[in-house]
Computed example of a mutant assay.
Amino acid sequence: MSSPDLVALGSAGANQWRVNKTTCDLVRKTRAPKSVSFAAEPQNLSIDLTRSAIIVIDMQNDFCHPDGWLAGIGVDMTPARAPIEPLSKALPALRKAGVPVIWVNWGNRPDKLNLSPSVLHVYKPDGRGIGIGDPLASNGAHVLEKDSWAAAIVDELAIEPDDIHVDKYRMSGFWDTPLDSILRNLGVTTLLFAGVNLDQCVFGTLLDANCLGYDCVLLTDCSATTSPAFCTDATIYNVKQCFGFTATATDIIAAID
Rank of each mutant, 00 (worst) to 15 (best):
K89D: 10
A39Y: 03
A229H: 12
R28E: 10
A53E: 02
P83S: 07
G107Q: 03
C24W: 15
I57W: 00
S172W: 03
L144P: 00
S227R: 12
K168M: 04
G10Y: 07
G187L: 11
D233G: 05
A247E: 08
K89S: 13
H165C: 09
A53Y: 04
Y123Q: 07
D162I: 06
K168W: 01
M171L: 15
D25Y: 10
A39T: 10
D199Y: 02
L219K: 01
D215F: 03
D155T: 15
A255D: 07
D62M: 04
V7R: 12
W149E: 08
S181P: 00
D111G: 11
N44S: 13
Q60W: 00
G131D: 06
I54K: 00
G195H: 06
H165N: 14
D155A: 13
L113A: 14
I132K: 01
V166W: 13
W149A: 08
V27P: 00
N210I: 00
G244P: 03
D199I: 05
D163E: 11
R170V: 03
L212W: 06
V122D: 03
M77E: 13
N20E: 04
P4R: 14
D257W: 01
C222D: 02
I130Q: 09
N105R: 13
N114C: 07
S35L: 15
L26C: 10
K146L: 11
I84T: 12
W17D: 06
K96T: 14
V188K: 04
A150F: 00
A255H: 05
D180C: 03
K21T: 13
N105C: 15
M77Y: 13
E145D: 02
K112F: 07
W175A: 14
P178S: 11
I102M: 04
P125N: 10
G187T: 12
P178F: 13
P42W: 04
T78W: 03
A90G: 01
L206K: 02
T226L: 07
A254H: 14
F38W: 05
I130P: 01
N105Q: 11
S148W: 06
P110S: 11
F174W: 12
H142I: 05
G173I: 02
S138A: 12
I55C: 01
R31K: 12
A71L: 07
G173A: 09
T225S: 15
Q200Y: 09
N139W: 12
A150V: 07
S46H: 06
A194N: 11
D147I: 06
D134P: 05
S227A: 15
G131W: 00
